[in-house]
Design a protein around this nucleic acid. Structure first.
Length: 480
DNA sequence: ATGTGC
């Protein structure tokens, strides 16, 4: 195996020329420093591996937060031709439709100063979190199937939130084509009692304050202003999505010999988009995506209730409005510019966020001129960014940008580095009240385990694949 | 990410 050669194209892009069985070149959006920091991380190799898949279009892409993942790198984006392309569970990830939503409030930071312990404790009590956690909802099988088919729409109909929440959710919180009958009994069982639970690892619910505005006009369109309090929720499809991924991987790995082309890595197990297996994976994945949207919708509803009760304020007074909800682990059919034409393709975004430009028909009217809100969670001590989608992303990166800070340390490395330390204390010294269900979670998630979110976001901004709008600072956080 | 691992 020859060493992978990356050619620096400009300050923010690195080309992996097509070599060997690569059908297209790779393109990595990153800075000199972030590239160096990746050290022995093999994700550039994974970018090259993805380029071997049939029907891949233009480039195998990676975002600046990229790091090693199952088959595809996390931070990877790849689009496939509908006729001769493939769909791959490894290109979506185990946490199908892991994503973020940002809820703006009418509160200003001085309204909650001194009350963070109280609010965080109340959230921690009311929002089930941690590995294997179950919620108070126990869905009947038929009700769960409705969740899988209707996503956030089910949640709103069941009384969790309002119809306007759907307007500011990517795809309206519902992916077409979900077929609950293609989700295994085991996945259904795991999902029954987990709707409305946060999960663990990097999932969180965070109270943040708008710290800096970079683009006044777009921030105003998003309803954000300096010193305003907001809530960021980061969660996914829980055990159900994991099980869907696991089930279909097991099935597709067995079929690798029948694919008719060599795979550089068995973890790239995939199926042609027009095959039975490909269609069935998509239909099951769509169910998990819908479950994740319903999950975040329920989590947000309970968050609103906790704020109302804890702060003794009316919903109108709190004005907790969903700014937007984005998914960052998904494969979707989208119409995107390619070779001067608009072409329907299957885009895999694994640890990458949609970044659609101003004027795109999928955006609600209020964001027509600003572009899509793009939500980027940072590490728990630092906070988050709000970006806006751009035409350049639409043209260059299949309408995609980064999804977060991205790990620099493995979980086990981070655990080791956290030995003998109180991360909770370190966080509170930095002004962030944290509560976590798992013993090791805070170590695994400590800020130094992640890349510098400012640098990741700056690469995306400089490269033009999203624009900086606002930065939010964490005040309080619950984790699994 | 995950009823965390052979």
């Amino acid at each position: 195996m020859s060493e992978l050669k990356l050619q620096k194209m400009d300050e923010n892009r690195w080309l992996i020329p097509a070599a060997g069985g690569m059908r297209v070149p790779g393109m990595v959006y990153s800075s000199e420093r972030l590239m160096k920091e990746m050290g022995r991380d093999e994700s550039p190799k994974q970018v090259a591996n993805v380029a071997h898949l049939p029907g891949i279009l233009k480039y195998s892409l990676a975002m600046p937060d990229m790091h090693w993942g199952y088959g595809f790198p996390i931070g990877g984006v790849a689009a496939f031709d509908l006729n001769d392309g493939v769909i791959s569970p490894g290109g979506v990830g185990y946490d199908i439709n892991c994503g973020c939503r940002l809820v703006a409030t009418k509160l200003r930071v001085e309204d909650i100063r001194g009350r963070m312990e109280e609010i965080v404790t109340a959230l921690y009590r009311d929002i089930p979190s941690g590995v294997g956690s179950r919620g108070p909802l126990k869905l009947s099988l038929s009700e769960e199937k409705k969740v899988l088919h209707d996503g956030s729409r089910w949640a709103v109909k069941a009384g969790f939130g309002t119809a306007s929440d759907l307007d500011t959710t990517e795809d309206g919180g519902r992916m077409e084509g979900g077929d609950p009958d293609l989700v295994s009994q085991r996945a259904l069982e795991r999902g029954r009692e987990q709707l409305g639970t946060l999960g663990s690892g990097n999932h969180f619910l965070e109270i943040e304050v708008v710290d800096e505005i970079f683009d006044e006009a777009i921030a105003a369109a998003f309803g954000l202003q300096k010193d305003q309090v907001a809530v960021m929720i980061h969660s996914g499809s829980r055990g159900l999505g994991y099980q869907v991924c696991d089930d279909y991987l097991a099935r597709l790995v067995k079929l690798i010999p029948k694919l008719g082309f060599p795979l550089p890595d068995r973890q790239l197990a995939c199926a042609f988009l027009d095959s039975r297996e490909g269609k069935e994976y998509f239909a099951a994945m769509a169910c998990a995506a819908n479950y994740a949207w319903a999950n975040r919708q329920v989590l947000m509803h309970w968050t609103r209730e906790v704020f109302e009760r804890t702060l003794r304020r009316s919903p109108a007074d709190l004005g907790m409005r969903l700014v937007y909800d984005v998914c960052h682990n998904i494969a979707k059919f989208e119409t995107l510019p390619l070779g001067g034409k608009q072409v329907k393709v299957c885009v895999h975004r694994k640890g990458a966020t949609r970044s659609f430009p101003p004027g795109h028909p999928s955006l609600p009217d209020i964001y027509r001129t600003s572009g899509q809100p793009v939500l980027i969670p940072g590490d728990m001590g630092t906070g988050s960014y709000v970006l806006a989608g751009t035409e350049k992303a639409f043209q260059e990166t299949f309408g995609s940008t980064c999804h977060g800070a991205g790990r620099v340390m493995s979980r086990s490395q981070a655990m080791k580095a956290g030995r003998g330390r109180s991360i909770r204390r370190e966080m509170s010294d930095r002004g962030v009240i944290v509560m976590a269900a798992g013993r090791g979670t805070l170590s695994e998630e400590m800020p130094e385990a992640y890349k510098n979110i400012h640098e990741v976001v700056n690469v995306c901004h400089e490269a033009g694949i999203s624009r900086k709008v606002a930065r939010l600072k964490a005040l309080g956080c619950i984790k699994g």
